[in-house]
Amino acid sequence: MSAAHDIAVRTQGVDISFGSGETKVTALQQTEFTARRGELIMLVGPSGCGKTTLLSVIAGTLTPQAGTVEVFGQRLDKMNQEQLTAFRRKHLGFVFQSFNLIPTLSVVENVMVPLLIQGVGHAEARRRSLIILEKVGLKGREDGKPNALSGGQQQRVAIARALVHEPPLLICDEPTSALDKDTGAQIMEMVRELSRSPDRCVVVVTHDFRIFRFADRIAEMEDGRISRVVDDPSTIESQHHG
């Protein structure tokens, strides 16, 4: 496979700023970021360094003011809102910090959402959702409400929802911040296991150094830029422990 084919996500010269005049805040400036197919890459850095903004750009929910964004060979910066919506529907899976499970729906109905958005029939969506719920260890809990589950179980539901439509790009925003150490480790183990595929890329934004060891590479951000990319996560993890 050529180097170009190996690239899952690439941003070049991306600028994003909010506000104007004296209140102008630059979130990303000339940001260069690359993620490869088959890898789990983490975006780390202090609060306000632009991690979430970069994640939004990669997810197609935020359009950069300058620069290019390429995800699995498609230029997001050239797409209109309708095309971006269709792109997200097909290519992206999301795991959010606060789970964002709809409390009035059952567990399986929450997992069905991405499939139903794609137009998959209700029965088929339920069938596929039950399969993935079994994979995340929630067989038997499918008809309960999310609020009846523990934090770790809710995040498993969120992972099932993110992967049920088999998206090539999985975006995780602080997936362990609401979980204790052991549960966080279990969740990351699951993310790595379920998402491990030569055609899938996982981008994780996190503050939680305890999960750095699950990354293939770690990109550190500072002041809206990628300051360095570490190929051996253990080195950066030991810095935080040290």
Binding site: T61, E82, T85, R89, L92
Partner: peptide, 9 residues
């Protein structure tokens, strides 16, 4: 918003 982010038109 989450459903919108997931690609619902």
């Amino acid at each position: 918003a989450a459903i919108k982010a997931m690609g619902a038109s």
